[in-house]
Design a protein around this nucleic acid. Structure first.
Lengths: 350, 350
DNA sequence: TTGTAGGCGTTATCAG
DNA sequence: CTGATAACGCCTACAA
């Protein structure tokens, strides 16, 4: 209709506006912004700078991205934001990214691992420069695709056979930490409860460490493992009953190591259903510290993960790769230590 | 150096590649993508379509955004992702946005309301088309700025004097629901505990509703309110002791209504510290349903917010404005009802 | 029905 | 040291 931009919606102020205001060329303005005042007359730089602030100009990341092929965007794929661990990691990662001038683009799988590929494609189409993946990562094809496009990937908490950077918990340290404590407190009929392992390596690692420990210490304890699908409380209750039975038969003391906070909470609920008291008839240690752990039953003993550090480390690791492209360093693996917070659920009681 | 794009990092496939592959012009490809097969020979459309899939082409949102001035991005500012309510809302909103072809850009304030302005500016610079704000929103100036730039805003859970769309809980319905229940169970010395109200209208509304109710029912109960800053357990303990005291003096039964899950958990912790049992010496109802509510103490009675609905509604509301620009409809306010989940913490016991 | 050309806001190359 | 000018990938009048 009208030849000029609609005067109603005041159009965005561009580099041209600044150039005009300062009486210089766009190129000069661009230089002031990027190589701050390098190789140019100070007075001109000052004039431009003033025009910028006067107009309140900010360059358009979109246009910049288009031009340089770099978006300063990082894609974060999360298995489930309802998982407190995911959220905690997210926080650490976001802080680091922002400090380095990157924005985080979040994609939540909401537990539906099938949408993983969709997530990566969507994020990639938005030109994210790299990925932080806290998810299964079974879609090898998509990963290869991302890598071919030269987009670095950092895996959080879940390894993969692919040669990728990884940051997660030191499960080989964490599991003995928990089991030593349980044995010390007199619990000697042990059960490891996890959601279906599938290809989640952290679950896998934890189970492996559990098995290794219990067979090495066979003189002092017995150990079994069970996989309990989400929502399947019948299986869970049955496993717990069997555990109590085994212990009762041989005058042993039964305890559970839960693979994460979600499972830990389910164990607490099951114990309540079965009418057995935590810390008395049943010992419990779970991975992941939470706000509510001290208040459920007699307090739940947890293996606290350094979630914030994990998130930060992941972000740092990725950003380092982004800023040094071409450097094909070997994939790095960061394993951070857990801390044990002993509470009532694992303390021997009168 | 070289005249052609570096062959090493395989460059992104563009609309030109597709055009060449299909032997047509860019314009035709663009048409196929946008007005799907409208006003064009089916065979050509098919040929283009095939080229698109063969090459695995996807248009660059960046370039599209630059051209159309629309980014298909929505900015979500969250007060604190550690708050389960925020996360739950986020989930609902994200689903709706994605279904409508929008991406969510997340900015977490991590409890630092001072960074609100920074959040909005950063998001705005990325050309988000609108905002969902779950935060205090005291930065009037920034809001006005956003509105002037024609960027719609939807407020979640916290009203404002500005004429903005809003979706949140129906506090006037929720509070009596909780208090009726408490009275019915025989609790009649009531205390409303909140974090500092500041300008958070949901806290304000809840307190107002509490006050209105207790003065209307003065014959059957007494009510007071207290603000407890985060981390200040001394104040909390003192308030609780005073409550127990008041009740003891007049042979009344003391109960607390907590403004949200975080405060609720703190009350449970304080009760434990003070050695008084929930549901017996002290009644408790808190806003926000959580996974752990059934397992803390005798189970915590909660006012469950329809978080997912709230998130969805917010997203829908915003998207509707985005797709009907110019339509200066009056600001709308959606108030969704709470449900009461009665548990041990509020049941009269022997 | 299809193609041509101009421009969205930046940056980078190359003259001056 | 500074200023034109050509892309970046896409959309959309306008022309054919």
């Amino acid at each position: 209709m009208s030849a000029h931009p609609a005067p109603t919606a005041r159009t965005r102020i561009t580099i041209d506006d600044v150039a005009r205001e300062a009486g210089v060329s766009k190129a000069t303005v661009s230089r002031v912004i990027n190589r701050r005042g390098e190789l140019m007359s100070p007075e001109l730089a000052a004039r431009v700078q003033e025009a910028i602030t006067r107009l309140g100009y900010a360059p358009s990341p979109m246009a910049q991205a288009l031009k340089r092929g770099r978006s300063r965007l990082i894609g974060l794929v999360v298995a489930d934001v309802a998982n407190p661990f995911s959220v905690a990691v997210m926080q650490g990662a976001e802080r680091v990214c922002r400090a380095a001038g990157y924005m985080l683009m979040l994609y939540n799988l909401a537990g539906d691992e099938g949408r993983e590929r969709e997530a990566i494609t969507a994020l990639a189409s938005y030109q994210v420069e790299g990925f932080i993946l806290h998810t299964l990562g079974r879609e090898r094809q998509v990963l290869d695709d991302a890598l071919q496009r030269n987009k670095p990937i950092v895996l959080v908490d879940r390894a993969l056979d692919a040669p990728l950077d990884l940051v997660g918990l030191d499960n080989a340290q964490a599991v003995p930490l928990a089991l030593d404590h349980l044995l010390q407190q007199g619990w000697n009929e042990l059960l490891f409860v996890t959601e279906p392992i599938q290809s989640a390596t952290s679950r896998e690692e934890r189970r492996a460490a559990f098995t290794a420990y219990t067979s090495a210490q066979a003189a002092q304890c017995r150990g079994q493992g069970v996989e309990v699908p989400a929502g399947d409380d019948a299986t869970l209750d049955a496993a717990l009953r069997a555990l109590l039975q085994r212990a009762g038969d041989d005058a042993r003391r039964p305890a559970v190591l839960a693979v994460n906070a979600v499972v830990g909470l389910r164990i607490a609920a099951a114990a309540k259903r079965l009418g057995c008291t935590l810390g008395r008839e049943l010992g419990l240690v779970t991975f992941d510290e939470t706000d509510w752990a001290p208040l459920v039953g007699p307090g739940i003993t947890t293996l606290a993960q350094p979630t914030d550090d994990i998130g930060q480390q992941a972000a740092r690791c990725l950003i380092e790769r982004l800023e040094n492209p071409g450097q094909t360093t070997q994939p790095r693996r960061f394993r951070l230590p857990a801390r044990l917070l002993a509470r009532g659920s694992s303390q021997r009681e009168g």
